[in-house]
Design a protein around this nucleic acid. Structure first.
Lengths: 185, 185
DNA sequence: TGACTTATACCGTCCAGACGGTACAGTAAC
DNA sequence: GTTACTGTACCGTCTGGACGGTATAAGTCA
């Protein structure tokens, strides 16, 4: 899961990272209501006291998740848009994947979106902004870039609702890809 | 707010409807964590006992919301797709509105989407299915219909995250409209 | 080298408050 | 009598968080 450091002295990765991994895991498998401190600590194989040593409060845990998300998003935008797969294909395919590092992180944060927390909304909006700016570098017409982005966001929403990837998605992606190529830089 | 019946005997609409109105209100303004039975009862101007008279449990309240949503969705699909505004414009504009009957209902349900509840996910997926089928009646190419739908869903997601409608959205809608007209029945 | 101090990374227990839900007596309209 | 509530009192459980204690490694100074 985690890019393991030279294995300091602890179980797997640092305690902080293990807690965040566990938090993401609970959010994805059982939803936001199940993501209590006790349950997160249990899955991280740590005591509740230990968890609270790394994150001073539940709020702090959310912030930790958002920080990891924001950092990962920057890298993800860069690498995806530079991929041989093509920026648009990379972006759209990413929105339908689960089980992969970044997609899981995104979906976990998206599960928090119902909480009306401005930090969560802010982080997700910033992510969208970053993707839009990235797409604009590859697609001349900003309207097309926006449309591509919206299609991807729609797919993220479907994934949130447990929808599996279907052939319809593939044809939609192919269509978007063609659309982008006709307007690419 | 509510299509008021000939004002039976109570304050405004039936108690059941008032409770659901209040539930939606809490979800939209303060999020899912704030939507406790006490708070919903308070906003419905009803006692907690009264609330539990109408909805036997919180789970039952959720189901009541989903039932209203599902029923409203059928009507909304019909009327929107028959609108003079044009099906596509009607659909896409609806996804960016707040303060309107159906849009609020949709956003309220969407706030529950992080809870990993199969009933919530099922209701939202059924809604998407209905919109897709409706759009297909107006757009020959099902791929285009799918793309239009995804664009709308992306806009719903943006609205969920508190994004306001921008000129970018307008141009995207205009683009989608043109796309649909070139492929309409 | 050993004694003392500091910092980090936890563990385990306890607690106050919130929450969902029950129970029930009473009221008012039809 | 039935339906639709109000209002209050209460209960068991869960949850976030505080707190005190422990183990270990690293540094400081004699």
């Amino acid at each position: 899961m985690e890019a393991h450091q030279p294995d300091t002295k602890h179980k797997r990765g640092s305690g902080r990272d293990r807690v965040l991994d566990a938090y993401i895991d609970v959010l994805l498998t059982d939803g936001v209501a199940a993501a209590t401190l006790d349950e997160v600590a249990r899955r991280a194989d740590i005591s509740k006291g230990g968890l609270l040593h790394h994150f001073k409060s539940k709020d702090d845990l959310v912030e930790g998740l958002l920080a990891r998300f924001t950092a990962a998003n920057i890298i993800e935008v860069e690498t995806t848009l530079a991929s041989t797969d093509g920026a648009v294909l990379g972006y759209l395919n990413g929105s339908l994947v689960s089980g992969e590092q970044f997609a899981d992180l995104y979906m976990a944060v998206l599960r928090l979106a119902g909480s009306n927390d401005p930090r969560v909304e802010g982080a997700l909006r910033a992510s969208h902004e970053a993707w839009f700016n990235g797409l604009k570098q590859h697609i001349e017409d900003p309207t097309i870039a926006r449309v591509i982005q919206l299609i991807g966001d729609g797919m993220y929403l479907h994934t949130l609702l447990g929808g599996k990837r279907t052939p319809r998605d593939d044809t939609a992606i192919a269509f978007a890809h063609r659309l982008a190529q006709e307007n690419s830089n």
